[in-house]
Computed example of a mutant assay.
Amino acid sequence: MKKKSIAIDMDGVLADVEAHLITYFERDFGITILREDIQGLTEEEAFHGREKVMSVLNSKDFFRTLPVIEDAVESLKLLQENFEVYIVSAATEFPLSLNEKIEWLAEHFPFINWQNIVLCGSKSIINTDYLIDDHPKNLDFCMGKPIMFTAFHNAKKENYLRVNNWKEAVAVLKEAV
Rank of each mutant, 00 (worst) to 15 (best):
T42K: 04
N165S: 09
I6R: 03
C142N: 01
D37G: 08
F94S: 00
K123T: 03
V53P: 02
K77H: 10
N82T: 12
K167A: 13
I117Q: 03
D16K: 04
F83L: 04
D133V: 03
R64M: 04
V73M: 09
F62K: 03
N127C: 05
L14A: 03
L161E: 12
H108P: 05
W104D: 06
K174P: 01
K2P: 00
N159G: 11
D140I: 07
S59A: 12
N164F: 11
Q39C: 08
D140K: 15
A169D: 05
N154V: 04
K101H: 13
E93S: 10
M143K: 15
N116M: 05
E158F: 06
E107T: 15
G12A: 10
F62H: 06
V163G: 07
V13I: 09
L14S: 01
A19G: 11
F141K: 11
E168R: 08
E168C: 10
F62N: 06
S89I: 04
D134F: 05
R35E: 10
R35C: 02
E81S: 08
E100W: 09
K123G: 04
I69Y: 04
M10R: 00
N154W: 03
K52N: 14
H153N: 13
A46S: 12
L79V: 08
M10N: 09
M1P: 13
L57P: 03
S59V: 00
W104I: 08
T65K: 15
L78V: 05
E74A: 12
R162P: 02
S55C: 10
T150E: 13
I33C: 08
M148H: 03
L66M: 10
A171P: 07
L105G: 10
I8G: 03
S89C: 05
A15E: 00
R50V: 00
W166K: 06
I132S: 01
N127E: 14
I38Y: 06
S89D: 11
D71N: 15
Q115E: 15
I8E: 08
D129V: 04
K60F: 11
L14N: 01
W114I: 15
N154P: 11
L173E: 02
Y160V: 00
L139P: 02
N116S: 09
L131Q: 05
A19P: 00
E70M: 13
S122G: 10
W114M: 14
L98G: 02
K157S: 15
T23W: 02
H135R: 10
E93N: 11
G121A: 11
F25L: 07
G30N: 02
A171I: 11
L66K: 01
E93G: 14
L78P: 00
F141I: 00
L41G: 07
L41A: 14
I22Q: 04
L76K: 05
A106V: 00
I102T: 09
N99C: 14
T150D: 11
I117P: 03
T42F: 06
Y86A: 02
E36I: 12
L14V: 06
E100G: 12
A7V: 07
D37H: 11
Y24P: 01
D61A: 12
